[in-house]
Design a protein around this nucleic acid. Sequence first.
DNA 1: CCCGGTACCTTGCACTGCAAGGTAGCTTGC
DNA 2: GCAAGCTACCTTGCAGTGCAAGGTACCGGG
Lengths: 111, 111
Amino acid sequence: MDAKNSITQMRRGILEFCIVSLLAEDEIYTAELIDRLKSANLIVTDGTLYPMLNRLQKAKLLQYRWEESESGPPRKYYSLTDPGIAFLEQLDSAWQDMTASVESIRKGTQK
Amino acid sequence: MDAKNSITQMRRGILEFCIVSLLAEDEIYTAELIDRLKSANLIVTDGTLYPMLNRLQKAKLLQYRWEESESGPPRKYYSLTDPGIAFLEQLDSAWQDMTASVESIRKGTQK
DNA sequence: CCCGGTACCTTGCACTGCAAGGTAGCTTGC
DNA sequence: GCAAGCTACCTTGCAGTGCAAGGTACCGGG
């Protein structure tokens, strides 16, 4: 057993929340998403993102439009749908609940 | 796709951290662990905990001793080993880093 | 002596994230 | 005008967690 692996596991499921949060601000395509996440210290590969974006889009939480690039192949710009915004609100609320729970345990105030 | 499922996934990997944190305070056996987690709004079943405790113990992060109960079968009381304490410190640090990252994304201060 | 409660454990499934590999459009250099 | 390289999209197989369901064994009470 390795702390590194446990830490990787600890980030599981957080990723979806981060992506939906970022898309709430802007229309973004995949490589840009990866950059934004990286600058917040969350390293992800595109092999992780493409299936996730497709999944969210099939669930009608995301929509996309094609935009041609000035240099290279066209890009898929994603944004939130209305259900996607509601979904984000639920995740955000769950995030706050969860961090509060963990903090109470972490600080040992919990009896 | 369902928000409920995403929220479940979001808690993945957090559990190990919570258990190690709780064990840092006290010697605890499984049913008591479940109660403590439940009172912090983290619902877990014993089918989840037993494999995890065994895994952590095999990795020498936990140790246990048997204690006979006044009513019922004997209990395994777990506690942290020295490597377990070091492990907890690493997880705690990773937890702080991760929450800071997510907060920066969540609040949209991130550019 | 059996029945319910408690405590331990295992198995099979669903799901995410990652590494590795694959396709195709566009530009640059020869 | 075409080969090489970059960019962008996507798929497949694996590792690992958490859960539901089911199983074993000890103990006390009626």
